[in-house]
Simulated assay, not measured.
Amino acid sequence: MAEEDIPLEIRQFVWRHIRSVEQLEILVLLWSKPNAGWSVQTVYDIVLSSKPSVEQWLEEFVRLGVFEKTTGLPPTFSYVATGETAAQFEALARLYKTKPVRVIETIFRRDRDPAQGFADAFKIKNKP
């Protein structure tokens, strides 16, 4: 991959926050229409993965302050990120629209960053 296609700041952001293409698809979907309210079913109908997984990612984005959840029946979700987080998500969404393969490669090549691999080698892991 031509790493210069994806700026280092965005690559690092992906490595910290994005773990799957499904998660990215959900982010881009809600980002593309921030004033809309999206139910789990509506997102599932577009992303076509699994409802439990869609719901998990929507709830995770709520926890991160990127989406807001209403208390209606069914509950709906909308994009509400602001500040630097919003700027990084928006930059990522725009790159995904123009260079989807490069962004997907970035998601799955997170372990190829030598410095991160070295740092991860020193993480303390709990024994099962």
Rank of each mutant, 00 (worst) to 15 (best):
K69M: 11
A121V: 04
A119Q: 12
G65M: 14
S20E: 08
I104H: 12
E55R: 03
I18G: 06
T71E: 12
V103F: 09
I104S: 13
S53E: 06
K123S: 09
L58G: 13
V21T: 11
V43A: 14
S78Q: 01
P75W: 00
L29N: 00
L29V: 00
Q23N: 02
V80I: 12
Y79P: 09
G117T: 15
L92G: 08
L48Q: 12
L27H: 13
F77D: 13
S49P: 15
V80Y: 05
R63C: 08
D111Y: 00
D113W: 01
R109M: 15
Y79A: 03
S39F: 03
W15P: 15
D113Y: 00
L73W: 07
R16W: 05
K123P: 11
V14E: 01
P34D: 03
E22G: 15
N35D: 12
Y96K: 00
A115N: 03
F61C: 07
S50C: 09
P34H: 01
I107P: 01
A87P: 11
K69Y: 05
K33W: 05
V28L: 05
A121G: 14
A121N: 10
T85F: 04
R19A: 05
A86V: 00
H17E: 11
V80M: 07
V47N: 13
R109V: 11
G83P: 03
I104L: 07
K33P: 09
Q88S: 14
V21C: 10
E60C: 09
R110D: 10
E105L: 10
Q41L: 07
T106E: 15
A121Y: 13
A121E: 08
T106G: 12
W57Y: 13
T106Y: 01
L64R: 10
Q56W: 02
F118D: 14
I46C: 10
F89P: 12
I18A: 04
E59F: 06
D111P: 04
F67R: 04
W57E: 02
L92E: 00
G37Y: 05
G83E: 01
A91I: 03
D113C: 07
Y96R: 00
T98L: 11
E68W: 04
D45Q: 02
V43K: 10
D45R: 02
K33G: 04
T76C: 15
V21Y: 05
R112D: 15
R16L: 14
V21W: 03
E68F: 06
K97L: 09
W38E: 02
K51A: 11
F67S: 06
V62H: 04
K99T: 13
F118Q: 15
T42N: 14
T98A: 11
W15C: 14
A121D: 08
F89M: 02
W38I: 01
S78D: 00
V103S: 06
W15S: 15
R19G: 09
Y96L: 00
S49C: 09
R102H: 08
V62S: 09
L73C: 08
L64W: 04
A91P: 11
W31F: 06
A81Y: 00
V103T: 05
F61T: 04
V40T: 03
S53V: 13
I18F: 03
S32Q: 03
A81E: 01
I104D: 10
I18C: 10
T85G: 08
